[in-house]
Design a protein around this nucleic acid. Structure first.
Lengths: 246, 246
DNA sequence: TGTACATCAGTGAACGCGCGTTCACTGATGTAC
DNA sequence: TGTACATCAGTGAACGCGCGTTCACTGATGTAC
C-alpha cells in the first residue's frame, strides 16, 4: 500500500537484527565489564556464533559500532539539551542543562560510558571513524563558552590570585601554542585563559562522572546528583559564565 | 657470618620470586591492557603455570597484590613529596609538589595507574584490604588543605559570583550531610565550601591524569606536563591556598 | 658432624571451559524474464 | 502469474588457540636428633 518503494522484508529484518545484536552486546558489556564475546551474544540471541558474521565482519567492527553509537548518543543528548535551553544569553543555565544531560545519559548507560571514557580495551584500537562523534559533546560545551566570551563574559576571572603567578599569565610557550591550536580547532575564538579554563572544566566534568561511575566514590557520597550539580555551578562560576562583564 | 639469624636460602628466594612474579605481571598489564593471565606470566618466567600457585593462591589474589602495591606506591610518592616540602606554610607549593609527584608516578607506571583508576576489571571485585592504601594520596592532599584552612586561608573564595546561587551557599541538605561525613572522615575540620572545593580539585586532578593516560587527549596537547602544571596552579588558586586571609 | 625425616618449589599431564574465525551446506527470500 | 536463477541468513562442524585450576610426582632445601 505505501506509495514509496517499501524496503524488502529482508532489508527490514536485517536492520532489526543488526540493532538487536548491538542491544544484546551492550547487555553483555553491562554484565561482564569490558569483555565482549561474539559467542556469548550469539548464544543469547539463540543463534550460532558464525551467523553474526553476516552482520559484522569481526568482533572489533561490532565494538567500533557500539563505540560510535555511544558517542553519537551522548553527543545528541548534549545537543538537544542545549537546543532546548530557550534563554540563549543565560550561558550558565545552558552549561548546567548540558552538563546534567550528559550525566543523565551516562547514568542511564554506564557501560556505554565506560566504553568511551574508561581505560582502553586490550587489543582494540579505535579507528578514525570514532573521532568525529567523540567530539560532539565537547563541541556543544565549547560553543556555550565561545558565545559567552563573545558576549563579554569569561574575562578577568581569577585576576585576584596573588603570590603564585596566576594560571592565566605567563603561560609556558608550548602550552600557549597548544591552546591556540585547540581554540582554532574548536573555533571558539577565545583567549588563552578562557580556553584553558574551559578545558579544565571539561576535565573536571568527565572526571566527576568517571569517579561516580567507576565506583571510586563508593560510600563517599549518598547524593551524586547534588554533588555533580554543585560542581557544574562551580564550573559555571569559574568560567565566568555569570557576570555581565568585568 | 652475620650475627642476626639470616633468613634461609628458601625464604630469600621465595621473596625474590614473589617480587619477580609481580614485576612480570605488571609488564603483561602494560602490553595486554587489563587482561592478566597467569599462564602468560609463568611462560615469561620460564616456569610451568601451576608453579605460580606456590606463591599466589589464585589469579585474583595476584591482582589484589598488584593493586595494593600500586596504591601504596602512589601513596608513598605523595607522602614523600609533601614531606620534602620544606616551607610548610607554602600550601600552594606543597599542593604543586604533591600534584607533580602523583603525575610523575602515574606517567612512570601508566598500567598501575590504569589498574587503580581505570574502569573496573571484569569479574574482579576489590577486597577490603585495598581501601586503606587507596586513601593514602587523598589523605596527603587533604592535609594540605586542612592546614591551609587552619592557617586562615581557603575562606571567602568565590564569594563574588553573582546571579546563580554561589556553589558555597544554599547546599542541598543531602550534599551538606555528605560533606560533613567526608570532612569528619578525613579529619580536615574544614567548612563545607572548602571541603567541596577540595573534592572538586581532587576530581580535576585525577580527571586530568585519566584524560592524559587513557589517550582521550591524543594529539590535543603536545606538552602535557605544562598543561597539568597550569591546572595544579589553577586548583591552588581556586582552593585559596595562596592568599593570607580574606 | 652425620643421618632420617619433613617441608616445599617446581613439573607435567590433565580437566573442562571459552574464544574468534572459516567453511561447505541448506533453505528461504528476492528478482528477471 | 509462473518459472528459473541469484542472493543471502543461518547451521553445524571444525581449527587452533588460550585460560584457571587440580593433582600426583620428583628432587632439592631445611630441621631435629
Amino acid at each position: 500500500m505505501p506509495e514509496t518503494k517499501a524496503p524488502t522484508l529482508r532489508a527490514r529484518v536485517r536492520a532489526e537484527m543488526t540493532a538487536e545484536i548491538k542491544r544484546v552486546a551492550l547487555e553483555h558489556l553491562a554484565v561482564d565489564g569490558s569483555a565482549l564475546s561474539l559467542r556469548a551474544v550469539a548464544r543469547d540471541m539463540g543463534m550460532v556464533s558464525s551467523a553474526l558474521y553476516r552482520y559484522f565482519p569481526s568482533r572489533d567492527e561490532l565494538l567500533t559500532a557500539l563505540i560510535i553509537d555511544a558517542y553519537d548518543g551522548l553527543g545528541l543528548a548534549a545537543e538537544e539539551a542545549d537546543a532546548a535551553s530557550a534563554a540563549r544569553e543565560d550561558f550558565a543555565g545552558r552549561w548546567l542543562a548540558v552538563g546534567h544531560a550528559i550525566r543523565a545519559w551516562a547514568v542511564a548507560k554506564p557501560h556505554e560510558y565506560a566504553l568511551i571514557y574508561g581505560s582502553p580495551i586490550p587489543g582494540y584500537a579505535a579507528p578514525v571513524d570514532t573521532v568525529g562523534p567523540a567530539n560532539r559533546p565537547v563541541v556543544v560545551l565549547a560553543r556555550i563558552v565561545a558565545e559567552a566570551a563573545a558576549a563579554g563574559r569569561c574575562s578577568a576571572v581569577d585576576a585576584s590570585a596573588g603570590g603564585l603567578p596566576s594560571p592565566a599569565d605567563s603561560l609556558a610557550p608550548a602550552l600557549a601554542a597548544d591552546l591556540t591550536q585547540i581554540s582554532d580547532f574548536l573555533a571558539t575564538g577565545t583567549d588563552h585563559p578562557t580556553t584553558a579554563r574551559f578545558l579544565a572544566a571539561l576535565t573536571q566534568l568527565f572526571g566527576a562522572l568517571s569517579f561516580e561511575l567507576f565506583g571510586r566514590l563508593n560510600n563517599v557520597f549518598s547524593d551524586y546528583a547534588a554533588w555533580y550539580d554543585w560542581q557544574l555551578r562551580s564550573m559555571a562560576s569559574y568560567l565566568g559564565l555569570l557576570e555581565e562583564s568585568a
